[in-house]
Design a protein around this nucleic acid. Sequence first.
RNA 1: GCGCCUGUGGCUCAGUUGGAUAGAGCGCAGCCCUGCGGAGGCUGAGGUCGUGGGUUCAAAUCCCACCAGGCGUACCA
Length: 555
Amino acid sequence: MELMVKKKLVTCLQQAIIKAQQENNLASVTLPEVIIEHPQDPKHGDFASGLPLKLARTMKLPPLTIAKRITEYILPPPEIDKFSVASPGFINFTLSNDWLVKQIDSILTAGKSYANLTLGKGKQIQIEFVSVNPTGPLHVGHGRGAVLGSTLANTLAAAGYSVEKEYLLNDAGNQINVFGQSLYARYQQYLGNEISVPTDGYLGNYIIDLAKEIMQKEGKEFLTLPQDEAASQLGEIGVRKMTEEIKQDLQLINVEFDTWFSEKSLYRNKQYQRAMKLLQKGGYILKKDNAIWFESSLLGEDKDNVLVRSDGSPTYFASDIAYHYNKFLERKFNTVIDIWGADHQGHVPRMKAAIKALGKDPEQLKIVICQLVTLRRGKETIKISKRSGDIITLNELVSEVGADACRFFFLSRSADSQMDFDIELAKKQSTDNPVYYIQYAHARIASILHLAKQMKIDYGQGDVSLLTTEAELALIRRLILLPEIIEIVSNTLQPHRLPYYAQNLATAFHSFYKQCRVVSKDEELSKARLKLVNATQIALAKVLSLMGMASPEKM
RNA sequence: GCGCCUGUGGCUCAGUUGGAUAGAGCGCAGCCCUGCGGAGGCUGAGGUCGUGGGUUCAAAUCCCACCAGGCGUACCA
């Protein structure tokens, strides 16, 4: 709705200028893209364009003069009440109250589907995130990627894309071997045999617990097997258990996947072989030093990368190429989003090169890098290392801070800024956190609507034109911005705008609530305001659900 | 060394892609409970946007150099 108005204003301005040019009132220069923005100061209206400022140079006229001449030709759409010129050269537009107020009815009619867009036109889009090796529990940094990915998925779905969420389960490869060997060592140790964990092995205490658990369930039978065989079998059991744990941890923060894709299956189902063959056909394969290389230097990369080690085992890069071969060429996803931690940043250019080598446009693979999370307890920094024993798991964080606060906190920062997560502070603030402020608004509304129900007020026929105060209109102005937020998040893949919007919406509501008594003796006004309150609840619940947070009726 | 990311009030962060007096939250100083949830509302103090140049009518935003932090730069993932 609001987006439509914005689009109308673009053409409105274009037409005005063209007409002015036809009548020789403005020089006929080529027009830059017409950008409509929201002025930060509400005094300047709902929309503004600085186009005259941009035209000043080519038209060789003062911006104000250009602005004035343009406005002479403006035929505003009906949603616009007034427009004006402001120095140094803006054209400002203000929405009509009549139109604003009517949006309440549209929101109520739309209900849960309010702010859903057709932007994606049903196009398929795959988003892969978390994909942590099942060799240990999720830690806090993984939580960030999980929250980011699931929120993006929710938002893209609302924008009209057909979204598929996927987790790549690395159940093959070197790390799994190391994991199995580590587990084997702990298993032996538990049974009293002095075997040390491999030097590059996993040292976390959870391995000890895992070994103990397996021992209790499966018994001593692995002692009879040769070490490598035992380690491999133990590894398999361990991976199964860790995967279960990861799934549960993700559920705690409201993250679910459509597909758990097995890395092993890439070899079993020959995707790996086909992908390598395709690269070979393209002439990107080189044998050197007993290893097989991907000649990424042919595609503008600094250097080549190893696909198959000299011992014959494929690298993580090779298997990731096979995986993306499968995504693009076999499952035929047109757009794929990968969310990676900053520690994979070096992997980006060569992956893009690989996509090109597979014959696809690298632009079809959108990689979101999210910066690492540093944990603190007060002043003490906690190092994150999956290999050492001292880690704060996602699970621990969630039980300390709560799932909603955790999600909100992760979302509030843009992916490319590192975050300092002070657990003490997060705990301390947990009763005075923005998340409560927002959810409180929702609960307050629920309470008001409940009261209206008790009083048997049927506000279905409420007359929204009775809403005229500034607080009411300001709230409506917030409500109608949600579709645009969803559009921006979908286009930029930056979900941190959602929590900001939610906060602003809650502020507008609380302020309205203070100034306007909703259920009062004035029956007609009450009905109109109940409609507004109901619409606000719809918008609040929508953002909260996009962010994967609860919309409590009571707190 | 090279590459990517970051540097904005005391703290944590936004800033709609170059525009109007740089915005929130927390914290701080005040004020507001004879009404639907005070987990609330309102007001105020606090900024040379890391530093120095440049581009132009206009720069937190673009370019260059430098400083500081994070990550990467493997036949690890």
